[in-house]
Write a protein that binds this DNA or RNA. Sequence first.
DNA 1: GCCAACGTTGGC
DNA 2: GCCAACGTTGGC
Length: 172
Amino acid sequence: MRHWLIKSEPETFSISDLARAPKRTTSWDGVRNYQARNFLRAMRCGDLAIFYHSNADPPAAVGIVTVVREAFPDVSAWDPGSPGHDPKASPANPVWSMVDVQLMEVFPRPLALDELRGQKSLAGMELLRRGSRLSVTPVTATEFRTIHTLAHARPAAGVAPTSRPAKKSRGN
DNA sequence: GCCAACGTTGGC
DNA sequence: GCCAACGTTGGC
């Protein structure tokens, strides 16, 4: 079994949206990057993935999903009305793929990016690499376990608050 | 809103 | 095949 991390902007689709979805299942559509697509295609039923909120305040790992249907054509790619429309895609040449994922658990508390960065055992994670933008990435079993364990632990003492320092006022 | 990092596009 | 221009991502 392999482990993954998938990103979504909560304004677009949050883990709460997934929790409300029929069968707590959704098609993970809209991936338009070849490397990320290839990772989607490598997913197998039963694989587990960390659900991560990007462009969020704070950005955070928020839960776990499992793959319940392996890669199939992303129909939104050839829908001219879809924001992910790709003129290269058609039913005969789908180009892009999606999988179905089902919600396994919403973490008891979100694991903010700051806190992930503070973990030595996660130092090698793709997510934490500078400039990393891939929306679908593999994670090791160890990284997965670390995140799962952290999410169920009390926040470590001495962890800095996740809020940013107030901006200096201009002028004067 | 800013901007660094990265992927894609297209002229040559 | 090179690479500049452009678009997107996503933390801050």
